[in-house]
């Protein structure tokens, strides 16, 4: 672990149904490893990883939880104090996408958020490596859902092929920076954030979504 105490520490919680690849995303990002057959998570685990954004190093403390509904009461105490929440689903699992709503609510309720409109969510559609036949959630559906829920950042990733994984975490931090800059313009890192916001604002759209594999070609699959 290279982290130094000087870096800002951001707590990132990965949420989503069982088997969508939460632990795999974390392990790919932190140690660039992937094991399709790694154990499902019991309880909670976390790993630290440094991430450089625009010259500033952030230490990400990434929390990985057990996805089954049953473990809710033992999972939710860990939400408090989170800076970012990654709502994760698998693009070949419609149900996991439908359950994002449940996860969003659960997090918002237990995270003790100060302001409900400043919710640090980012949506991650994992397993973008699957064939287009296996895809059950199109990128358009993801973007629509995000817009409906005022979530401005979403991305498709593949922990297996390492596609967009680091980008997802970067996007999460950038998203956090935007929120921070809005929440308190006197923050020290405001200079970084203003630039970033402009960059994104230039495209004149609310969402900032990045696709992974073949996108939107399977809309009929409901």
């Amino acid at each position: 672990m290279r982290s130094t105490t000087k870096n800002p520490l951001l707590k990132v919680v990965i949420l989503g149904d069982g088997g969508v690849g939460k632990s795999c995303l974390m392990n790919r990002f932190v140690s660039n490893q992937f094991d399709e057959h790694s154990f499902h998570t019991i309880g909670v685990e976390f790993l630290n990883k440094d991430l450089d954004i625009e010259g500033q190093t952030y230490t990400l403390q990434i929390w990985d939880t057990a996805g089954q509904e049953r473990f809710k009461t033992l999972r939710t105490p860990f939400y408090r104090g989170s800076d970012i929440c990654m709502l994760t689903y698998a693009i070949d699992d419609k149900m996991s996408f439908k359950n994002l709503e449940m996860w969003r609510k659960e997090f918002a309720y237990y995270a003790d958020l100060k302001e409900s409109n400043q919710i640090p969510f980012i949506v991650v559609g994992n397993k973008s490596d699957v064939s287009s036949e296996a895809r059950e959630v199109s990128q358009l559906e993801m973007e629509t859902w995000c817009n409906e829920n005022s979530i401005t950042s979403c991305i498709e990733t593949s922990a297996k092929s390492a596609s967009n994984v680091e980008e997802a975490f970067k996007m999460a931090v950038q998203h956090w920076l935007r929120l921070e800059s809005r929440a308190d313009i006197n923050e020290t890192h405001v200079n970084d954030t203003v630039d970033l916001s402009k960059k994104i604002g230039d495209s004149n759209r609310m969402s900032c979504c990045v696709g992974g594999g073949a996108a939107g070609d399977d809309d009929t699959n409901n």
Binding site: G18, G19, E36, H37, S38, F39, H40, Q68, M95
Partner: peptide, 16 residues
């Protein structure tokens, strides 16, 4: 739902 979760978890139980 149970069937789907069992399928996922069996594939990641003691595979080492």
């Amino acid at each position: 739902q149970r069937k789907s979760l069992i399928d996922k978890d069996v594939n990641r139980t003691d595979r080492n």
